[in-house]
Design a protein around this nucleic acid. Structure first.
Length: 423
RNA sequence: GCGGGCGUAGCCAAGAGGUUAAGGCAGUGGAUUGUGGUUCCACCAUUCGGGGGUUCGAGUCCCCUCGCUCGCCCCA
C-alpha cells in the first residue's frame, strides 16, 4: 500500500519482455548500420532553449508537454521530448558538416513528454531515430523512408500503411496558410473549439482535427498540394517516383501535417490499425531549415523516429516470444560439492553454455524439479561422492539417461551429447 | 487539463447486505531423507487499494481519497 510505485506513464520492462526489446534493438542496429548510418548518443537533457527554438514555441510539445526544471546552476533544462533537436545540436557543435559529405546518424533511447498516458502513449517512451543531414536531394527522402520500411519489414510487421504528403517550403506554407485562413474564417463559428483556437495560432493543424463537423468543412478546403510552387511540386513528384521504383506502396494524405514546426517538403507517417487510438509507428520528414535555425550552416536534412513501445505492441500481437532456456542446470548438494559447483559453473560458462546453478541446497528431488522448469537440456550433478572423486554426473533430461564423467571432460561430454554422439 | 471503465493473494478470477472470502495457475512442505516431467495429500488473503458513513450485519450500498486503465487534446 505504501510501497513506492513507478510514476504514471513510466513502465518497467520486465525480463519476460526484455528479450523482445533486445530483438528490436538488434534488428534496428543491423538494418541501420547496413545502410551506413552511424550511432549518435546525446544527453537525455538539454537546455530548454534548444527545444523551444527547434520544435517551435507554438507546438503542443513545447507549450504543454515538456519536463522542464531549473538545475543548481540556475539553467532551465528539459528532458528531451524528441531526438532530432539534440542530434542537430551535436551535429553543429562538433562541426560534423565540416566533413563535407552527407552525415547518416541514428539514435535510440528514452524521450519524455508530460501527457496523459493511454494505450501506446507514455510519459517516458523510447524512440529509434535516423537523420540524414547534408542532402536536399529527393533521393535522400526516399532512402530515409526505405530504411524505415526495411526495418519494419525485417521485424516481420505486416499491414502497415505509408502515408505521404508535402508541406512545401517556407513560402509555400505561408501562401497556403493564408489561403486556408481565408477559407476557414467564414466558417469559424462552425469549427470545434480547439480548431477555432488554432485558426490564429496553427491553422494547418485544423486539417487533421477528428471533429466531424470540422472534417466536413475541411473537405472543401484548398489543398496544400495545390499550393506548392512548381519546384516543390516537382520535388515531391520525384520522391513519389522514387518510392514507386522501389516498390514501396504509399497513399497520399493531404491532411498529414506533422506537429513539429521544423518540417518542410516531405512529411510521412507509417501507420497501423492495431495500436488503439494511436496510429503512428513511425513519423518523419524533411527539415531543411532546422540546422540554420539552431545556429549551424544552411543544411538540408531528412529524418524519422519510430516509437519503440508501439512497435513492441505490434510485435507482441504477432507471436508469443520464446523464452531463452538455459543449457545446463547445475544440481549440487553437500558442502564440498556446492563449493566445487561454483568452479564447474564457471568452466561450463566459459565454454559458451548458459548455466543456471541451484543455490538452495535443497533435496535433489526439488532441484531436479526446478531444473525441469528451467527448460534446461541437461543437469550436471555434483554430490558428495562426485566431489570426492572429482567427477560429475550428466543427466540428459529429455530421456533421463545419465553418465558419470571426470570433471576435466565435462565440456566435451556435453558437446557430444548435444551432437547426439556417445560420449 | 477534461471524460469513461476498473481495483478481491505473485498471476487469472468467483462473489450482486447474512454465519468460516469459491476455484485455477504459480509457490512451499510431504508421499519419494542422491534423481525431474505424471499423480496424491497438506499449507498458502484475520481480509477484499485506503479512509469515513449507512446497517443488528458491508467485499457487496453511499461519500471521500489513492491507484490502474481506456479515450479527448496532441504525438512516436
Amino acid at each position: 500500500m505504501s510501497a513506492i510505485q513507478a510514476l504514471p506513464g513510466t513502465k518497467d520492462i520486465l525480463p519476460d519482455e526484455s528479450g523482445l526489446w533486445q530483438r528490436l534493438e538488434a534488428t534496428a542496429r543491423t538494418i541501420l548500420q547496413r545502410a551506413a548510418f552511424r550511432e549518435l548518443r546525446t544527453p537525455i537533457f538539454e537546455r530548454t532553449d534548444l527545444f523551444a527554438r527547434g520544435i517551435g514555441e507554438a507546438t503542443d510539445v513545447v507549450g504543454k508537454e515538456m519536463y522542464t526544471f531549473v538545475d543548481r546552476g540556475d539553467r532551465s533544462l528539459t528532458l528531451r521530448p524528441e531526438g532530432t533537436a539534440g542530434a542537430v545540436r551535436a551535429f553543429i557543435e562538433h562541426k560534423l558538416h565540416a566533413s563535407g559529405s552527407v552525415q547518416r546518424l541514428w539514435y535510440c533511447g528514452p524521450m519524455f513528454r508530460y501527457e496523459r498516458p493511454q494505450a501506446g502513449r507514455q510519459r517516458q517512451f523510447h524512440q529509434i531515430g535516423a537523420e540524414l543531414l547534408g542532402s536536399g536531394s529527393p533521393r535522400a527522402d526516399v532512402e530515409a523512408i526505405a530504411v524505415a520500411v526495411e526495418l519494419l519489414e525485417e521485424l516481420g510487421l505486416k499491414s502497415l500503411r505509408l502515408a505521404l504528403n508535402s508541406v512545401g517550403d517556407r513560402d509555400d506554407r505561408a501562401r497556403y496558410r493564408q489561403q486556408l485562413v481565408d477559407f476557414l474564417t467564414p466558417h469559424a463559428a462552425d469549427l470545434d473549439e480547439d480548431s477555432r483556437d488554432r485558426l490564429s495560432r496553427n491553422p494547418l493543424r485544423i486539417l487533421d482535427s477528428k471533429d466531424a463537423k470540422t472534417q466536413d468543412i475541411c473537405a472543401d478546403a484548398p489543398k496544400l498540394i495545390d499550393a506548392l510552387g512548381p519546384e516543390s511540386a516537382a520535388r515531391f513528384e520525384r520522391v513519389q517516383q522514387g518510392l514507386t521504383d522501389l516498390g514501396i506502396a504509399y497513399a497520399l494524405d493531404h491532411r498529414l501535417v506533422r506537429g513539429l514546426d521544423y518540417y518542410t517538403h516531405t512529411a510521412f507517417e507509417i501507420q497501423s490499425d492495431d495500436l488503439g487510438a494511436q496510429a503512428t509507428v513511425c513519423g518523419g520528414g524533411r527539415y531543411d531549415g532546422l540546422v540554420a535555425e539552431l545556429g549551424g550552416p544552411e543544411t538540408a536534412a531528412v529524418g524519422w523516429a519510430i516509437g519503440m513501445e508501439r512497435l513492441i505492441l505490434l510485435l507482441q500481437q504477432m507471436a508469443a516470444p520464446v523464452a531463452p532456456a538455459v543449457d545446463v542446470y547445475l544440481v549440487s548438494r553437500g558442502e564440498a560439492a556446492e563449493q566445487k559447483a561454483l568452479a564447474v559453473a564457471q568452466q561450463l560458462r566459459r565454454s559458451g553454455l548458459t548455466v543456471e546453478m541451484d543455490l538452495t541446497g535443497s533435496a535433489f528431488g526439488k532441484q531436479f524439479k526446478r531444473a525441469d522448469r528451467s527448460g534446461a537440456r541437461a543437469c550436471v550433478i555434483l554430490g558428495d561422492e562426485e566431489a570426492k572423486t572429482d567427477t560429475a554426473q550428466i543427466k540428459w533430461l529429455a530421456d533421463g539417461s545419465q553418465i558419470a564423467v571426470d570433471r576435466a571432460e565435462l565440456v566435451e561430454a556435453i558437446a557430444k551429447l548435444d551432437a547426439g554422439l556417445d560420449p
